[in-house]
Simulated scan of single mutants.
Amino acid sequence: MFRNREIRQFAVLFFIIAVSAVSMGFAVSMTAGMLAVVYTVVFGVFFFVFTKARYKKIAQIADQIDLVLHNENRLYIDETDEGELSILQSEIRKMTLRIREQNEALRGEKTYLADSLADIAHQLRTPLTAVSLILSLLEDNPDENERKKLVREIKTLFIQMNWLLDFLLKISRLDADIVTLKNESIRVRALMDSALQPFLIAMEIHGIVLKMDVPETANVNGDFGWLSEAVQNILKNCIESAGDQGHIEITCIDNPLFLELTIHDSGCGFDNDDLPNLFDRFYRGKKANASGYGIGLALSKLVITKHGGMITAKNHFQGGAVFVIRFTK
């Protein structure tokens, strides 16, 4: 306590005042002098005990702050009576709790970043290994037709890697909040037509029948380009699941409370074990023949969530998969 310069100065000043008061008391009378001594001692002891208690509380707060700064999860600060010290304790408690929350968030982000980098490396390693193998075959192959075939395979693999990197870049930009999403009125029918456009030829070749019931008046606010891509990823999943001679049904509910899009395919649906993880990044399902990289649905969910909507997936009671997208108005 006496390490504090202010306390030392106060002690010296108190000693001078006490000596002066006692001297004047004895100058008046013996009784006045004794009373001055008693009052001086009582006041000095009371002030010493009170100040020591306050400094003890401050020392406890300092110890707790030091624990938090050294990543200690425990945080305990005693409650005190109303006063400036109590207000200080309350503010320090808020600060330390916020620091701990930020530390936990940073640890979570570091873990997520490490896992994401490991997943990306794993996803890229497979096509890169295939390219390396094909290049070794290409180098020693004298057959011109075979060489052309190997070159086409390399081009296909590079297209796949470029697609993968493009998706990963989009996800990372959305995660980092560096994408400015437009907020414009979008006709849902035009949005669905745009999302279906890349698949029309494939659907015709495979005999997939499309039934769409979307009112012309249905509108949603958002970024047309990003929402179109989000719906495209869902439609791609449904088209692949529906297979030859399958069908896809798209319906829309539009009311003053929300707008809801439902996409139903005639495929085999999802395994129950896969349902909780469908929108997780790099999740490809537990089936041995699962294809793709497992990021299309993850991107769709991220885009829809950024627009204030939500997406769910389930199995239809009549068979097939059902995706439900809802935007609250």
Rank of each mutant, 00 (worst) to 15 (best):
R5M: 13
I7C: 06
V19D: 00
V19T: 10
A21T: 14
V22T: 11
M30Y: 09
M30W: 13
V42P: 02
F47W: 12
K57L: 11
I58A: 08
D78M: 04
L88P: 01
Q89I: 15
E91C: 08
R93C: 02
E104C: 08
K110D: 07
D119I: 10
L124G: 07
T126C: 02
N145V: 15
E146F: 11
R152T: 13
T156V: 10
I159D: 07
M161Y: 03
M161I: 14
W163T: 15
L164P: 00
F167Q: 14
K182L: 10
S185K: 11
I186C: 02
R187Y: 08
R189S: 11
L191Q: 03
L196G: 06
Q197C: 09
F199I: 11
M203N: 04
E204W: 02
V209Q: 10
V209R: 12
L210C: 04
T217E: 05
A218F: 04
G222H: 01
G225K: 06
N233H: 11
N233W: 09
I234E: 00
I239W: 00
E240G: 13
S241C: 05
I248N: 00
D254H: 06
F258A: 13
T262P: 00
D265W: 02
D271R: 15
N277A: 12
V303M: 01
T305F: 03
G308W: 00
G309N: 04
H316E: 01
V324K: 10
